[in-house]
């Protein structure tokens, strides 16, 4: 999808083309509104602008009451996950020109978590699931007097799941999580995977037992929504299946 570029681009060589775009944002102010509703905003953006830049323009120049989270604005902190054109993405890693700017771009809060205001959701249930899988090094025996060494192959084993930034794009793209919020969610399993397959860690059995729960890995239906949604390109569904396999090989 290419941008609808305006004609005035030949004015300065090398100038970045600009175009007009409509953002259809889901707004909800719990003090005033009964239910969330959509509002349209028209902004002029550069071809190099991201959805986050467009949101900034709206907040700074048009409607200061628009609320959303963002911190680093460069795809590392994981604060600005939102549903853009029906797909979970980071607003700071999504170029406006890539999301079909010919039509209004819908921007909604991530789904399945309670909305607090506009694009801000309560992340607490999501973080609680992460805490529940014990995302920290568990060891037994004496502390070594030096670093805990690890071979490159052993480090490679869980490299993919170390990339998680806890943006919640995966968990809130999961239909099983949407339904009743009981499922641990893809992110918690990714967080557990990172330690289960770490050769330095001794807590794998405990974590596997936690994820053997009724609401654990067995609720995964392999719809791959999480893998599609992950802005870090983590093979989330694959990680979940690896945890399933570890559980099975442990039992047999």
């Amino acid at each position: 999808m290419t941008a609808t570029v305006e004609e005035n681009t030949e004015a300065k060589p090398g100038a970045v083309p600009t175009f007009e775009v409509t953002l259809r944002i889901e707004r909800y102010n719990p003090e005033v509104d009964d239910a969330p509703h959509f509002e349209d905003y028209r902004v002029t953006v550069h071809g190099t602008d991201r959805v986050l830049d467009a949101l900034h323009q709206i907040k700074w120049d048009q409607d200061g009451s628009l609320s959303f989270r963002r911190s680093c604005a460069h795809g590392v902190c994981g604060s600005d996950a939102m549903r853009i054109n029906g797909k979970n993405r980071l607003a700071c890693k999504t170029l406006v020109k890539d999301v079909n700017p010919g039509k209004p771009i819908t921007v909604e809060p991530i789904k399945g978590l309670p909305v607090e205001k506009d694009l801000i959701v309560d992340m607490e249930p999501f973080f609680q699931a992460y805490r529940d899988v014990m995302p920290f090094l568990v060891t037994t025996g004496n502390e070594p007097t030096r670093e805990r060494l690890q071979s490159q192959e052993d480090r490679e084993r869980f490299d993919d799941t170390t990339k998680c930034i806890l943006c919640a794009a995966c968990t809130t793209s999961c239909p099983v999580f949407w339904n009743d919020g009981q499922y641990f969610g893809p992110q918690a399993i990714v967080g557990a995977h990172r330690f289960i397959f770490d050769s330095r860690d001794d807590g794998a059995a405990q974590r596997l037992e936690i994820l053997n729960d009724k609401e654990g890995v067995w609720r995964c239906r392999t719809t791959f929504n999480c893998t599609d949604a992950c802005p870090r390109g983590i093979q989330v569904t694959k990680a979940i299946q690896e945890v399933k396999r570890a559980l099975l090989t442990n039992k047999f």
């Binding site: 889901e26 909800y28 719990p30 239910a35 969330p36 509703h37 549903r83 029906g86 797909k87 979970n88 909604e108 789904k111 309670p114 909305v115 607090e116 309560d122 607490e124 249930p125 609680q128 529940d132 793209s173 239909p175 009743d180 919020g181 009981q182 641990f184 037992e209 936690i210 053997n212 729960d213 009724k214 609401e215 654990g216 719809t223 791959f224 929504n225 599609d228 949604a229 039992k251």
Partner: peptide, 27 residues
């Protein structure tokens, strides 16, 4: 495949529904 349905009417939800009720023992 990414589902694209949106049900704003479902929100906001009570926090309590996220508290896991299952006491996970057994396989």
């Amino acid at each position: 495949m990414t589902a694209t349905t949106s049900e704003p009417g479902l929100r906001p939800v009570q926090k309590s529904r996220y508290k896991r009720r299952s006491k996970g023992r057994g396989n």
